Computed example of a mutant assay.
Amino acid sequence: MPANTDRYESAVARYFEAWNAREPEARAKAVAAAWAVGGGYTDPLADVVGHDGIAAVIAAAQEQFPGFVFRLTAGVEGHHDTARFSWELVSEAGGTPSGGGSAPVAGSDVITLAGDGRIRSVYGFLDRLPAGA
């Protein structure tokens, strides 16, 4: 069991804040809080480095799935500078991220952390994706 699980959980909480930030300025601020300078994001549909690229990927996902939010579906596990967690994209129910309805997209991510606790890299795996996405 890792000695400091708060480090991983805090990083993942900031990650979801960034993915769920709707306004461009709030999203840019959340991305900067979550990712280290020069940090990256890679999944089967994207491979970007830097805050601007990450914010653009998040904005594109929000455009593709308006009214949906990302939420954690399983506990965060970590050791050393690496953590993993699972998530899903759910329809907002009454404006709350507790979600409701179906989850058209779900996956698991592995992150590595920089010394300051911000994300250095994300490697995303998509477990469920709608056809044509």
Rank of each mutant, 00 (worst) to 15 (best):
6 D>F: 12
7 R>A: 15
12 V>P: 09
15 Y>K: 12
17 E>F: 05
18 A>E: 04
20 N>Q: 03
21 A>E: 00
22 R>F: 11
22 R>C: 02
22 R>W: 11
23 E>W: 04
23 E>D: 13
26 A>D: 12
27 R>V: 06
28 A>F: 04
31 V>T: 04
35 W>H: 00
37 V>S: 13
38 G>H: 05
39 G>S: 08
39 G>V: 10
42 T>S: 04
42 T>P: 00
43 D>K: 12
44 P>R: 12
44 P>S: 08
47 D>V: 14
51 H>I: 05
53 G>A: 10
54 I>K: 05
55 A>R: 01
56 A>T: 12
58 I>A: 09
60 A>Q: 13
61 A>N: 09
61 A>C: 03
62 Q>F: 00
64 Q>C: 04
64 Q>V: 02
64 Q>A: 15
65 F>E: 05
65 F>D: 08
66 P>D: 05
75 G>T: 11
78 G>D: 10
79 H>Q: 13
80 H>L: 10
83 A>K: 10
83 A>H: 12
85 F>R: 06
86 S>Y: 03
89 L>C: 12
89 L>N: 06
92 E>D: 06
93 A>D: 10
95 G>P: 09
96 T>H: 12
98 S>Y: 11
98 S>K: 13
100 G>H: 00
103 A>D: 03
104 P>T: 08
105 V>A: 03
106 A>V: 01
107 G>M: 06
107 G>T: 07
108 S>C: 08
109 D>Q: 06
110 V>Q: 13
111 I>E: 06
112 T>P: 02
113 L>P: 04
113 L>G: 11
113 L>D: 01
114 A>P: 12
114 A>W: 07
115 G>C: 00
116 D>F: 10
116 D>E: 05
120 R>H: 14
121 S>K: 15
122 V>W: 00
123 Y>S: 15
124 G>C: 09
124 G>V: 08
126 L>W: 01
126 L>E: 05
127 D>K: 04
127 D>L: 07
127 D>C: 02
128 R>F: 01
128 R>C: 01
128 R>H: 06
129 L>D: 04
130 P>T: 10
131 A>Y: 05
132 G>R: 02
133 A>L: 02
133 A>I: 04
133 A>V: 09
